[in-house]
Design a protein around this nucleic acid. Structure first.
Lengths: 148, 148
DNA sequence: CTGGCAGATGAGACTGAGACTCATTCCTGT
DNA sequence: ACAGGAATGAGTCTCAGTCTCATCTGCCAG
């Protein structure tokens, strides 16, 4: 199931890029395909390293350029969880999304979902003097292993 | 009223530092006093610049060291709002705290409070397999001026 | 099919936040 | 007042992320 979803996101991303007028090129394709295989947030460095490990060398500039374009089209979300480096993750076209628990000791990042939280944020977003189009929630603490 | 609260935080911070075994020194005092005068999140660079502008030159290393110690004691919260640089703000001893709206166009950062959101997070924190001791919510979008 | 151009890419230099080092200075308890 | 250790400053170093520019390539016109 999750494999199917990833494939869908990848195709959806290629479609959106094409509609936005972008040409096809090896570097962007490699980055998009790699992102499609991720289930949670990865850093630009992770992407660069993974591609390199897989034998495809993509210039860092191309990785960042692609991430910027994908974020612009709303295909990925950029987030910072307090470790100094930005992370990116595919945005599910269905609208379903999650947030993150971060272990401040080992640096582990774990996703979670909560409907009640989403509702509270949605209601709040309507009330403020801001046109809110995205949000990010990060819970800091100690993961099971580190807290023990 | 808010002036009183700031003074309280500053004193509280000095007390906590002393109890934690830290000695008194000019650099740390300058940083704590400056933080006590802030109402919302500032960057380490802001602090350095403000102190420099005020005639007190404090080495960047001292600024970062102090921020780290204060964060360790729970006197300030470190947060990242998606601009690549960390921000810090005093934690009100009363427990009252706020989150942030960030304008992705002009970079403006505005605080907000919401009891319902806090409750949702508190409930959620009890349910997850993590010892949650802090949280951060960032709403991204366009501020009134930029959205117009 | 082919030439040419606009967009895509790669390699490397550059920037800036933040971490690290270590010699010097300054508290603090005795 | 003094010794020992913590605090500080100045500078260096690292590394994520940005920028530049020369080269390459997908894509369309002819």
């Amino acid at each position: 199931m999750s494999g199917e979803e990833s494939a869908t996101w990848t195709e959806h991303a290629f479609d959106s890029l094409e509609q936005a007028g972008y040409r096809r090129g090896g570097a962007r394709r490699a980055v998009v395909e790699l992102l499609g295989r991720q289930s949670c947030a990865v850093t630009a460095i992770d992407i660069d390293a993974a591609l390199r490990a897989g034998g495809q060398t993509v210039a860092r500039a191309s990785v960042y350029r692609t991430l910027e374009q994908l974020a612009e089209l709303g295909l990925i979300q950029r987030l910072e969880v307090g470790q100094g480096t930005a992370r990116y993750e595919p945005v599910n076209p269905s609208g379903e999304h999650h947030h993150h628990l971060v272990c401040d000791r080992c640096g582990d990042v774990v996703p979670f979902e909560d409907r009640e939280l989403e509702k509270a944020i949605a209601r709040l977003s309507r009330r403020v003097a801001f046109k809110v189009d995205d949000h990010e929630v990060v819970l800091h603490g100690a993961c099971g292993a580190c807290a023990a």
